[in-house]
Design a binder for these strands. Structure first.
Length: 599
RNA sequence: GGGCCCGUGGUGUAGCGGCCCAACAUGCCAGCCUGUCACGCUGGAGAUCGCCGGUUCGAAUCCGGUCGGGCCCGCCA
């Protein structure tokens, strides 16, 4: 520790230090004033130490400490001593000792803070926390999470360095590409009317590094997307960006899995990883079994395809769904057969908000019959088949969604599965359930645009043995695209890239892009493929999400030092803000009056 | 672009048409206290109920708008 202000930290002193003369500096966590005797809990990021002033032992120090209140920054000097018998605090790591203060210096006073820095406050107004982020960051819970995140990042770096990865920085002022998310844009002063974009990810740059021969690249890269915020999305986030050459999908997944497993175990040795090697699901399996492409595998309650069982039920919703490529999926919620009208309505509402036209619910009666709106359409045999397919037992609630689009049916029911998993407390909080989803469909039909579009990254390569079918049946071709999910969150995703120009041009042609348009946007990458581009692929893992999951938080704000609100404001700095007319003029920009523009 | 929820002393909550110029806890201030650790005891100050407008004899309470925050849909290749 430094010399001028402290000899030890506030988390360091033990019984073995008794008798030593020490100097501590820190914040007053709490003060307990007994008149001629006063206790101060001194706090820094390492811990808390009790220091004592005594009017009879050291009058001057006692007087100096009198005006001191919570969150003042102070420095004390004195001797470490055992606490008297019966006054040891087992809650504190430093609880066996205290410092008998003989010199007490106020380094800086503090106003009364706008919220309690010394205790957790679950209901605390989010805007207050963000306005005074430096005080929130001072609180032990947030400090713990920032330390966890730092440890995580450090472990990632060490593992990747040990595996011969080379860290390369890429620019944050790059070219705008209108594909994908909206770009954040930065005006050029020197070239009026032209703009840089902040990278949504260093995608093209890292591929160019592969062409350049840096066969194992990584970077903790900042990525920017000008899209609406969510609990797991901020305007800017950090990704563990990785790219490798001379690899197949299996190689990337194996390398990443090894890193993720080792880092998890290093950072949180007490949290069990549900299964290694990580389970693998194809996209189709993930959707049909869990109704999600980022399934939470901590609990079962898998979707059941009722297509067979209800194929001949005379119920319009079913027959319409099953007429084409649709499906009827169901889940079994054990013991929920007694759900009230109100509870069922909540579930119906949830299903509808996630795309379902409705939700069919039946409860299983003691005599094995079904009760609910659907029951009267079912024969005895059909009832039996449904019970058999779902393994339904008396007292259970069966929930089903039918839709002409099987993905819609599965997706809505997948959301219900999560809801029921939550309500029934089926998800173990400490388990880490990593899972790979691989491969994905390469294209999806975009009805609005009237063309095929890449499901993920347009540079993703098809499975090599499906390449030939790309033009004939785009919907059936899979990309060498893998996503890593953890406890129901998408942690990261990547792919083997197309490294041949002809194939990339074919893929882009299918997506309706002209060669000229491609050249305009991706010229350098295209050209590079003609200069000895090696086979390559990679992945990007969301560091914020990973940190949040490991810290048991459901919002990435809780693991970011200075996050923004849902409307994109930085309440502490006051961003975004207007700029001066001079700044605008220098950039050749003019602000349009939004209100006048609309009318 | 849209839906839902929240906004009352510093903080967290209660009050939801008159009993409220607003209650409780904590914090804050003052005094007392030599073994506390959410110290204790006594006393005190502190909010025109986010803001604007409306309904009403009467509004923290009902309605509309607005601002701020949160959750979600769309969006996020």
């Amino acid at each position: 520790m430094g010399q001028a202000f402290r000899s030890h930290t506030c988390g360091e002193l033990r019984a073995s230090h008794v008798g030593e003369r020490v100097m501590l500096s820190g914040w007053v966590h709490r003060r307990r004033d007994h008149g001629h005797l006063a206790f101060f809990d001194l706090r820094d990021r390492y811990g808390i130490t009790q220091v004592v002033t005594n009017a009879h032992e050291a009058a001057e120090a006692h007087v100096a400490a009198e005006p001191v209140r919570n969150e003042w920054v102070v420095q004390v000097e004195g001797a470490v001593r055992h606490r008297p018998p019966g006054t040891i605090n087992a809650e504190l790591a430093t609880g066996e000792i205290e410092v008998a203060v003989d010199a007490f210096t106020v380094l800086n006073a503090s106003k009364v803070p706008p919220f309690y820095v010394n205790e957790e406050q679950p209901g605390l107004d989010e805007s207050l926390r963000l306005t005074y982020r430096y005080l929130d960051l001072r609180r032990p819970p947030l400090q713990g999470r920032m330390l966890l995140r730092a440890h995580l990042a450090s472990a990632v770096r060490r593992r990747l360095e040990a595996a011969a990865f080379v860290e390369v920085e890429t620019p944050t002022l790059i070219r705008s590409t209108p594909e994908g998310a909206r770009d954040f844009v930065v005006p050029s002063r020197v070239q009026p009317g032209k703009f840089y974009a902040l990278p949504q990810s260093p995608q093209q740059l890292k591929q160019l590094l592969m062409v350049a021969g840096y066969d194992r690249y990584y970077q903790l890269a900042r990525a920017y997307r000008d899209e609406d915020l969510r609990g797991d999305r901020q305007l800017e986030h950090t990704q563990i960006d990785i790219e490798m050459s001379f690899v197949a999908a299996e190689d990337v997944m194996a390398t990443v899995e090894e890193m993720v497993t080792a880092v998890s175990r290093e950072v949180l040795p007490d949290r069990p990883i549900m299964q290694t090697p990580f389970p693998r699901l194809t996209y189709e399996e993930a959707m049909s079994r869990y109704g999600s492409d980022k399934p939470d595998l901590r609990f079962g309650m898998e979707l059941v395809d009722l297509g067979e069982a209800v194929g001949d039920v005379d119920f319009r919703i079913f027959s319409e769904a099953l007429a084409g490529d649709g499906a009827v999926y169901a889940i079994r919620a054990p013991g929920c057969g007694n759900y009230s009208r109100r509870q069922l309505d909540e579930l119906i509402d949830l299903a509808q908000r996630h795309g379902a036209k409705g939700l069919i619910h039946v409860s299983v009666q003691a005599d094995g019959s079904l009760h609910g709106p659907l029951a009267k359409f079912l024969s005895l045999t059909q009832t039996q088949e449904i019970l058999e397919a779902t393994a339904g037992e008396a007292g259970d609630l069966l929930l089903a969604v039918a839709d002409p689009d099987r993905l819609v049916a599965a997706g809505a029911l997948g959301r219900l599965r999560l809801e029921m998993g939550q309500r029934l407390d089926l998800r173990d909080a400490s388990t880490l359930a990593y899972v790979w989803v691989y491969p994905f469909p390469m294209f999806k039909w975009d009805g609005d645009l009237g063309r095929w579009d890449a499901t993920h990254n347009p540079f993703s390569a098809p499975l090599w043995d499906e390449e030939a079918a790309m033009e004939a049946d785009p919907g059936a071709v899979h990309a060498q695209q893998y996503d890593l999910a953890l406890n129901g969150w998408e942690l990261g995703g990547g792919s083997i890239r197309i490294h041949r120009r002809d194939l990339l041009e074919r893929a882009f042609a299918l997506m309706g892009h002209s060669v000229d348009g491609m050249r305009d946007q991706f010229g350098a990458l295209l050209d590079s493929l003609e200069y000895g581009a090696p086979p390559h692929g990679g992945i990007a893992i969301g560091l914020d999400r990973w940190s949040a999951l490991l810290a048991d938080q459901d919002n990435i704000r809780e693991v970011m030092a200075f996050p923004k609100t849902q409307s994109g404001s930085d309440l502490m700095m006051g961003a975004p803000s207007p700029i001066t007319p001079e700044q605008l003029a220098e950039l050749s920009l003019r602000v349009v009056d939004q209100d006048r523009e609309r009318s």
